[in-house]
């Protein structure tokens, strides 16, 4: 979840104060690494995005106008870097075509087993954790970025929209689709797990 935004001095950051820059890196690098890892599903790519993000942040700090919060601005740079990395790695893969029927028909849930009361130790055992990781990698990237920023990093709808250059309505639509998509994947997995244990 989102770390509490530390009290950083924008003046010192803009002036290139190394102590303040180190505090900024300490505060935001865990979140940015987490976001990049889950966006890309690859440790090396995540590290590249982490480094490039902070290099760009350092370079652009002097021009940061504070129209959004510092954290949203950093997330925005990181999300852009991650999406560019995806395009580089999979040039044939079009992010623009990925989300179809954006405002159209509603996604219909199919899996109706109730696994929500399973004990947490079972829901998050080693095998289940792998399933969670697999499921999020099958989530279309445009939905994944919204889910990660909103539900995992705890940004508001407005902040997520700012970070991804989307309208708030688009964020809400994608968030619903992402949540239902992951619910469906986990439901299929836990339903099978419950059946095997009977």
């Amino acid at each position: 979840m989102t770390e509490i935004e530390p009290e950083l001095s924008l003046d010192l950051l803009r002036a290139g104060d190394r102590n303040e820059l180190a505090r900024l890196v300490e505060a935001y690098s865990p979140s940015i690494y987490r976001l990049a890892s889950r966006m890309l599903g690859n440790a090396q790519d995540a590290e590249d995005v982490l480094q490039t993000t902070f290099l760009k942040v350092f370079k652009a700090l002097a021009d940061f106008e504070g129209r959004s919060s510092l954290s949203t601005w950093i997330y925005r740079i990181a999300a852009n870097e991650a999406l560019m990395m995806m395009r580089r790695k999979q040039p044939a893969y079009s992010l623009d075509e990925e989300v179809e029927d954006e405002e159209g028909g509603t996604y219909q849930p199919k899996e109706m087993a109730d696994w929500s009361a399973l004990p947490e130790a079972q829901l998050l055992d080693v095998e289940a954790q792998k399933q969670l990781d697999r499921a999020i990698q099958t989530l279309p990237a445009k939905l994944r970025s919204v889910f990660l920023l909103r539900d995992v990093e705890g940004l508001s709808i407005r902040e997520t929209a700012e970070a991804l250059s989307l309208t708030e309505t688009n964020v809400k639509t994608r968030l619903l689709r992402a949540r239902l998509f992951l619910r469906e994947q986990l439901s299929a997995y836990y339903t099978e797990k419950m059946a095997l244990e009977k």
Partner: peptide
């Protein structure tokens, strides 16, 4: 009811899983 409960649980599980990263 099931869709609501399992969706909220899904969100919670991802938060729990990823915050360990």
């Amino acid at each position: 009811r099931v869709v609501f409960d399992t969706t909220t649980r899904t969100i919670y599980l991802y938060q729990s899983r990823i915050e360990r990263d």
